[in-house]
């Protein structure tokens, strides 16, 4: 559905997108995951034909985003980084406007947005500017869906939204997937990655890895341990000098310690006991995508 080939984009000296190649298959929920400033928005703008790539190409359903930009624009549902709604128009007026702009009506495609819109319906006369962040996000998604696009491009739809709204949003994306939508979505939250079929991890304009989230976690090269104690910070500093450490990062109320594969649990226990005088708990764990991302970042 989406074929991005060796695409590049620079602004002056800064290379925002550096030689990126991505293939998204029909019906996939594809996640582009990386921090702010990694180049996500530039890539989205090239896909939506709003920016022209310096090199390489992006083709959506056979249409080139530069040459056939009018065609491309017709088949896309795009949600830009900020919820681009008219804040002085009501919920219904926004939806109506975007439907008309795409030569359709709310009624015609109501079935597509029904599940999402029913939460908004009680507030349909409220101005978009008076909605909470989660509601704005839902309305923006409805506006992007209302013309029954072939491909959904969602640029950081969950930024600035609380964990509950975020979770709900991903549930919506999952249910849209069952309706056959192909979705390309970006997010800075690594835990969002687990919900995608395939993800590309992006940093400084480059793809660090691209695979299913499970495979990315599996490729993690080290043995990983979770250690918890009463004071995370002290524990982390204590581990800091451990010679067999590959890396150590805080993870909520525990610390993830990576070591070489031959290291055994007793070894670590003994080392820690020798330098700290409080209780701790250690167990081996499976790496998650955040562990993998940080490992890949370090390699860069």
């Amino acid at each position: 559905m989406i074929n991005i080939k060796n695409i590049k984009k620079s602004y002056g000296d800064i290379t925002a997108v550096d030689d990126i190649t991505i293939h998204v298959r029909k019906g996939q929920l594809f996640g582009l995951i990386g921090p702010d400033g990694a180049g996500k928005t530039s890539l989205f703008r090239m896909l939506t034909s709003l920016l022209i790539p310096d090199e390489g190409s992006a083709v959506i359903m056979g249409y080139d985003t530069v040459k056939d930009y009018r065609k491309v624009r017709n088949i896309l549902g795009y949600m830009p980084e900020r919820f681009s709604l008219y804040m002085d128009l009501s919920v219904e007026e926004n939806l109506n406007f975007f439907a008309t702009v795409f030569n359709t009506t709310i009624e015609e495609n109501y079935h597509l947005i029904k599940d999402i819109y029913k939460v908004l319906e009680p507030f349909k006369d409220r101005r978009a500017g008076d909605l909470s962040g989660g509601m704005k996000q839902k309305l923006a998604l409805c506006c992007a869906l209302i013309h029954k696009p072939e491909v959904l491009l969602l640029d950081e739809p969950t930024t600035g939204v609380d964990p509950v709204s975020r979770k709900e949003f991903w549930e919506m994306l999952k249910s849209l997937q069952t309706k056959g939508f192909t979705t390309f979505v970006s997010t800075p939250f690594l835990d969002d990655a687990e919900l995608c079929d395939e993800v590309a991890l992006i940093q400084d304009g480059k793809i660090l890895d691209m695979d299913s989230p499970q495979n990315i976690a599996k490729k993690y090269p080290h043995k990983l341990w979770s250690i918890s104690a009463s004071n995370n910070y002290k524990l982390l500093r204590a581990i800091g000098n451990y010679e067999k450490k590959k890396s150590a990062f805080a993870f909520g109320n525990s610390v993830h310690l990576a070591t070489a594969n031959e290291v055994e649990i007793e070894e670590i226990q003994n080392y820690l006991k020798s330098i700290i005088d409080y209780d701790f708990e250690i167990k081996p764990i499976e790496p998650n995508i955040e562990d993998a991302f940080m490992e890949l970042m370090k390699e860069e």
Binding site: P35, D36, G160, P188, L190, Q203, F249, F293, M294
Partner: peptide
């Protein structure tokens, strides 16, 4: 107020080091 929004995971942790 949401000091680490959109920051990469390693820098996020470095930020917390500063907090500590």
């Amino acid at each position: 107020d949401e000091p680490t929004s959109g920051v990469d995971p390693i820098t996020r942790r470095q930020f917390w080091d500063l907090i500590y």
